[in-house]
Write a protein that binds this DNA or RNA. Structure first.
Lengths: 220, 220
DNA sequence: TAAAATTTTTAGACAAGTCTAAAAATTATT
DNA sequence: AATAATTTTTAGACTTGTCTAAAAATTTTA
């Protein structure tokens, strides 16, 4: 059967997917409400609808998980979102802090071949401007980012490969600090008291709070 | 004041604009209902709302016209629609019969600079893939298409510059007949009985019905 | 393990946009 | 100009997605 979901439905599936990826288990109503910036009662209503459509499984007072079908839709929406972010940054020269809200709208455009054509036009990118992996046409996605800058010990170096928080304020801070994807960071000291770090990047020494370092994905 | 209209509101403004352009006078409720594929009662409700927002002026039982503000929004939406059509055809290689429904969704994306950046990326095109003129950044639009193939007399030649009907079935017919924008058409004979025409195009002779010829914009 | 706190669900309401059916106004007909 | 036909508006209802307030279930705490 062919589904044509509302934007709200797709957004709920995305939210359930991304919470599920992080936590691994079934997702609480309140967690969804938090992510969707809505009320728990609204979530209950929507989850019931998605459950009726076979996109999630829900046990009362227990939690919600995506069905295979629901996950597939969530991943496709994510793919669309991330490809549009690439388009906005690479093709239309937006800055990486400007594209999230626009892609949030564009990801819901309905068309059989639009996203695949976009993918081709962009030469099949693997990552979006924030370092998030782009699922391929079949929904296969390489989750390989799990090391945060905050876990790097003093003396070690690493490469910035992604951001966890895509808020404009965080990204603008990174721009100012010359922290960009691909840049090398050397951790010089880590403060015991608040876990703030002194780091060397682009031959400059700066201090970043734990709040910052735990939102940066890095690799050795 | 800054407006953020719903897609429905923008679509009504577009409909009122395009009927108004064709007829020159104020627009009837039923005409809007026909174009929006909805019921007159729904139109009455929406027109009331648009009127409350200062986007149209409506006299009960008389008709509706756009205010300056309403027209500006309609033209901006049209600009967005036509630029996205260019993008879909020129950049993503869609055929011209596939893009209307997609652009219908994309035209509603909200962003301060998206459409202007797209315009720049496309090198400021003047016409969309169906020959419709694209309003510039200030909403200035050159309406210059008003000669239909049906008005060309036997013996005369003309150039195809646009289509009035953008339905997929009409455009597919034109593809098959090698009738494309920019092609020259020579009108060989016109049948008195049904106004069907024998035309020469790309060195081929074909017959087109009045239904066809009155939906093709041409110039001498 | 019983009371307290928290989470989730239910019940009822609202706004947007649509519909049907009926009433009101306008236009056409004779 | 009165009646008929048409157009438009009004009234009331439905759907989607949201909300608040209260009830029910679960989890925590003492």
């Amino acid at each position: 059967m062919k589904f044509d979901l509302s934007q709200a439905e797709e957004n709920y599936l995305k939210a359930i997917y991304s919470i599920g990826i992080d936590t691994g288990k079934s997702v609480n109503t309140n967690q969804i409400a938090l992510m969707m910036k809505t009320k728990a009662s609204s979530v209950t209503d929507m989850v019931k609808k998605l459950s009726d459509k076979g996109l999630v499984e829900h046990k009362k007072y227990k939690g919600t998980i995506l069905t295979r079908k629901g996950e597939s839709i969530a991943v496709n929406t994510l793919r669309s979102h991330r490809l549009w972010e690439c388009f906005l940054v690479d093709t239309l020269q937006f800055n990486w802090d400007e594209v999230h809200d626009i892609a949030e709208q564009m990801e819901h455009i309905k068309s059989d071949s639009l996203v695949d054509r976009l993918d081709q036009f962009l030469s099949f990118p693997s990552y979006d401007p924030h370092g998030d992996p782009i699922p391929d046409k079949n929904g296969v996605i390489k989750h390989h980012k799990n090391v945060m800058l905050s876990s790097v010990v003093a003396g070690d170096s690493c490469i910035v490969i992604g951001v966890k928080d895509s808020s404009s304020s965080f990204l603008k801070f990174l721009d100012n600090a010359s922290i960009r994807l691909g840049n090398e960071i050397k951790v010089v000291t880590v403060e015991d008291f608040d876990q703030s770090m002194q780091i060397e990047i682009e031959n400059k020494m700066i201090t970043v709070s734990y709040q910052i370092s735990k939102n940066l994905y890095v690799k050795k």
